[in-house]
Amino acid sequence: MAGEVDNPSFFLTTLQKGVNWTRTKSMWPATFGLACCAIEMMATGAAHNDMARFGMEVFRASPRQADLMIVAGRVSQKMAPVLRQVYDQMAEPKWVISMGACASTGGMFNNYALVQGVDQIVPVDVYVPGCPPGPQSLLHGILTLHQGIMSGEIQRSTGVV
């Protein structure tokens, strides 16, 4: 077999591309709203901005069925273990978008109660800035993630931080 095909990577790379394409076109987010950003996340899914255009309108209530966790809002010390557990429950491959200043860095609340950046708990693929990021910003973040997956820049095989 190996002798017959001179360039075996030809077939394999296109399959990889095909896989990546399917991953980006039906990336179901988990319903994981925390704070203000969750409202904008819901607004992104609603009529005006319509995430269904990207095959993402199905917010899955169960993390087992979700591919993408959008950490929308501030993560408190009490919520952090829960968040990690939800992430662990998601099936591979999975991605994480950290939405908004609070999820990315703790935002303006640099105090005892908040985790200063969700990347301390779960690996983050795309950070979306804003307080809260508007639906357009979130869509931009999502498209950035899609591009990264398509180009192979973002690959996820293990859930290790």
Binding site: Q77, T105, G106, N110, N111, Y112, A113, Q116
Partner: peptide, 17 residues
Amino acid sequence: WDGHPLRKDYRIGSVPV
């Protein structure tokens, strides 16, 4: 949790940026 956060002698607990 240890301590009572809103007491005045409890540090705000900020992490240096």
